[in-house]
Amino acid sequence: MAQCPCGSGTPFPECCRPFLTGKAHAPTAEALMRSRYTAYVRRDESYLLRTWHPATRPATLDVDGGTWQGLEIVATTKGQAADASGTVTFAAHFVGDAGDHGTMREHSRFEKLGDEWLYVDGDLDGYRSD
Rank of each mutant, 00 (worst) to 15 (best):
A2C: 02
A2H: 11
G7W: 12
G7D: 10
T10E: 15
P11G: 05
F12C: 00
E14K: 09
E14F: 04
R17D: 11
P18S: 06
F19H: 13
L20D: 00
A24G: 09
A26Y: 06
T28I: 08
A31C: 02
R34F: 05
S35T: 06
R36F: 01
Y37R: 02
T38Y: 03
V41M: 02
R42M: 14
R42D: 05
D44K: 02
E45A: 15
S46V: 07
S46I: 04
L48E: 04
L49I: 11
R50W: 10
H53R: 06
A55E: 15
R57P: 07
L61K: 08
D62C: 12
V63L: 14
D64A: 14
Q69I: 02
I73H: 01
V74S: 00
A75I: 00
T77F: 01
T77N: 14
G79Q: 08
G79D: 08
F90K: 00
A92Q: 05
H93W: 09
H93E: 12
F94K: 00
G96H: 14
D97C: 10
G99P: 09
H101T: 11
G102S: 06
H107F: 03
F110R: 08
K112Q: 15
L113D: 14
D115A: 13
Y119F: 15
D123C: 02
D123I: 10
G126K: 04
D130K: 11
